[in-house]
Design a protein around this nucleic acid. Structure first.
Lengths: 301, 301
DNA sequence: CCAGAGTCATAAGTTGTACCTATGGAGTAG
DNA sequence: CTACTCCATAGGTACAACTTATGACTCTGG
């Protein structure tokens, strides 16, 4: 099985039809059809049953699909790695992070790192946690920073700090007079917060129940940074992580949430991939930057 | 990077020289040299430094070597798996069958199959017909064997034989002197047979009416094998399928029922699911085993 | 029941990869 | 200097991977 045959097989399995798979791979339908037929001929057994002009995977195809996917992803990762090597000959450190740490922690860590290692190329990816895990697995990133420490077993999560919640008030809101807010203060407010079935939403609900408060989020978001626009528009008070540098944004006031739950800040690495020396140095800088920034939070919240 | 380029790179890394690597891969030295040069050209950076006519790996080559080795090993593994699948050396065959064929046909079919394909995992489920149909639909089994050919339209039933009824007499019963029994012989006996509204019960009643005989089952069972205990306890004569190897059980005498109805023996598959190659081979073995066993029945009933 | 949109397969032709054999240049060792 | 080893180049063949054009089949909506 050649690499191309692997790609074609996977595309057809994912797309369901030859035509759609050909579109995915940006080649013509007959080209893909030929490769598929030739692959089956070489393998000696059918990968798909042709029934009423459609394709249906055979059990044999289902059997090898997971391996094929893993291998193809590995090949893609290697291709990306080689192009990275071509471009940044002296080295490349890729960090994938959720938006809050990407905006709060990485700028400082990258600044320190760049000062010490000026010719190492740095790359930052801001992505949701699932993508970060995927990038670590394929080698598209070697370090990750996220606000969750419950991760698959092949990902190592080192908790390097924790941060509470912040309340974002529209400019001029009455609650702005208090230096910190409690869940009880928010009971009758219009709330903007993480949508249900996510970890922060669960923890907020849990804390509210424990304090005998009933919260009623009326606007749900998936990433905290998207709250900014809604708060500026006066749609309500946002309950989000306290890590993002909210002070930088105009039109809103930030107040810490007292006695609320905490987010862990975790440094992620793949257990199946070794770190380069540059990666290790970056890891140290991220640890230090996180420590420093959380210290500033506590000093001047 | 194509798969072949990966193999060539690894061979050169391991062998140290182009010539030795070409020998390892059983190709000519110029062929391998070409592939290597072309690979470097495509990658955009050198994998080897040419110094004094010899090759020395560059740091970049060392960087990607572990990934390349892992991927190449994975590809080899997939190739081995596919050839195993083609030859039917690997896989899992799950057969769901009613108790009579499960005990009479599957042992022989599995024995033959195992002799030819020792590494294929076999799994047998003994279940009532409704469960068999369910398992075929969900993919929990790919083959079914039952004693009924009237099945839902999404289940294909191939009749591979038919078998009559057998009478199980308690040891020492008066009728034991006859070599075969008729429905008339059973008219005034205590009978153990399938409970009403099942196909065998209906067919028995139909045949009895056609022959002007009135049967009076006094004990109803759902699966034929459960008759054994009742017969051994002297509760009556059982009228059951002749397929199960009743001779194996002590304390009862077996006599064929003459001029009685017949059970079809059907091989079941789902019309919406394809068979793996291993499944197909097992299907052939089941057909053969059924043919052989029914032949033995006719020869020595 | 037919027209149109979708499916997959086939045909014919182009390009480039992966091989081959034959040969040349360059370093090393006797 | 010669013989040996190494790698690269030249020229040619077979096949894999594409292209466009086309046909056969199935489902669906008027």
């Amino acid at each position: 099985m050649r690499a191309r045959q692997l790609e074609v097989f996977i595309a057809v399995m994912r797309a369901g039809t030859v035509t759609a798979a050909a579109r995915m791979l940006n080649i013509s339908q007959p080209a893909l059809s030929q490769i598929l037929l030739h692959t089956e001929d070489e393998l000696g057994f059918a990968l798909f049953e042709r029934v009423k002009g459609r394709l249906r995977p055979t059990p044999d195809a289902l059997e090898i699909f997971p391996d094929a996917e893993r291998l193809s992803a590995g090949l893609d990762g290697l291709r990306r790695k080689t192009t990275d090597l071509r471009l940044g000959r002296t080295g490349l450190v890729r960090v994938a992070a959720s938006p809050p740490p990407a905006m709060a922690i990485l700028p400082r860590a990258f600044t320190k790192f760049r000062a010490q290692h000026p010719n190492i190329l740095l790359r930052s990816h801001s992505a949701p946690i699932a993508t970060i895990v995927d990038m670590l697995r394929t080698g598209d990133a070697s370090l990750g920073v996220a606000m969750d420490d419950r991760l698959p077993p092949d990902i190592e999560a080192e908790v390097i700090g924790s941060v509470g919640f912040a309340c974002l008030l529209p400019a001029g809101h009455a609650l702005q007079r208090k230096t910190e807010l409690t869940l009880a203060d928010l009971a009758r407010e219009e709330l903007i917060s993480y949508h249900g079935n996510t970890r922060p939403a669960d923890e907020l609900a849990l804390a509210a129940r424990a304090q005998g408060v009933k919260l009623s989020p009326s606007l749900e978001i998936d990433v905290s940074i998207s709250a900014i626009g809604f708060v500026q528009a006066g749609l309500g008070i946002a309950l989000v992580d306290a890590l993002l540098p909210w002070q930088q944004f105009a039109g809103l006031a930030v107040r810490p949430l007292a006695a609320g739950p905490e987010f862990p800040v975790a440094l992620l690495t793949s257990r199946t991939r070794a770190l380069s020396r540059a990666d290790e140095m970056m890891r140290d800088e991220i640890r230090a930057a996180c420590y420093a920034i959380l210290g500033e939070h506590r000093a001047r919240p």
